[in-house]
């Protein structure tokens, strides 16, 4: 089991290295996309700045708390899309019978599939979140270590929820629209104060769309450390990894090859 995990992590690192070299091939394009995305995200500072000029707190959050949500959301999203950039294509690959190449290779197919692509603009999201963190907290190294840990757990939960929804394609055909919507939900819930969500929505962000564990609770732990809540976030991350693996491999038994001849270099 541990050997398998080590092998998978090694594969992930190789893909990451390869994808970075590939992105760097077109350096100007990389820089434009990266800084363009940072500028794109900055527009929302303006929105919140105007809102907080009108009220002191929204749902118990101050402007700084809100920007912390943005920092964690942005870097988690960035880590997810840099490392697991091929998740968005899972449904299409299942429907077109394009998984054969991955199934024949001597590595964990799920890891092999999701890591085989990267999203260049996600580097801009990652950097944006880090810069935002330092702007809010200054050089708080303990806080920064926690921030990095939560961005990794956030990126993993985000990836696992998306994989789980894409894996539904094994059972019920094209669920691409649903998977995209889930990604939108995950991102949108994470960039608004938790205090505005009540009733059913509050239940949803703790369960099916676990944004509370990706963004809100980590932000609270950075502001006020709690070991119990930290362990809670780690446990939920592990749970979603298990769910994604079970959903994908159970579904894979129903997979039908399309006899499509493709080469993967």
């Amino acid at each position: 089991m541990l050997t398998e995990v080590r092998k998978s992590l090694k594969l992930m690192l190789y893909y990451l290295k390869f994808n970075i070299s590939s992105a760097m091939e077109y350096r100007t394009s990389f820089l434009i996309q990266c800084f363009g995305m940072m500028l794109n995200n900055s527009a929302f500072i303006f929105f919140w700045w105007i809102l907080f000029n009108n009220v002191n707190t929204i749902g118990g959050y101050t402007f700084r708390d809100e920007m912390m949500l943005w920092a964690i959301s942005s870097t988690s999203f960035g880590i997810c899309f840099i490392t697991f950039g091929n998740i968005s294509n899972i449904t299409r690959m299942i429907l077109n019978g394009e998984l054969d190449t991955y199934l024949l290779q001597p590595r964990d197919p799920l890891m092999n599939i999701v890591c085989s692509k990267t999203e260049v603009s996600a580097w801009g999201d990652t950097l944006y979140g880090i810069i935002m963190f330092f702007l809010i907290r200054g050089f708080d190294m303990k806080g920064f270590m926690l921030f990095l840990l939560f961005c990794v757990t956030g990126g993993l939960i985000l990836a696992c929820v998306r994989i789980s929804f894409h894996a539904l394609s094994f059972y019920s055909g094209n669920v691409e629209g649903l998977a995209h919507l889930v990604t939108d939900f995950l991102i949108t819930f994470g960039i608004y104060p938790k205090g505005i969500f009540t009733g059913v929505v509050k239940f949803i962000i703790y369960t099916v769309i676990p944004t509370a564990f990706i963004v809100h609770i980590p932000a609270e732990i950075i502001m006020q450390f709690s070991i119990v809540r930290l362990l809670g976030v780690l446990a939920v991350t592990l749970l979603w990894i298990v769910i994604a693996y079970v959903m994908f491999y159970r579904g894979l038994k129903k997979y039908e090859s399309g006899n499509l001849i493709i080469s993967k270099l």
């Binding site: 077109y26 996309q33 500028l39 794109n40 929302f44 105007i50």
Partner: peptide
């Protein structure tokens, strides 16, 4: 590579275009 132009334009609409809130604010 002009995709950044689209992102920036859409964010100008979001903000000073008054999409997210009326410009009276």
């Amino acid at each position: 590579e002009n995709s950044a132009f689209f992102w920036i334009y859409s964010k100008l609409i979001f903000t000073i275009g008054g999409m997210l809130m009326p410009i009276e604010l």
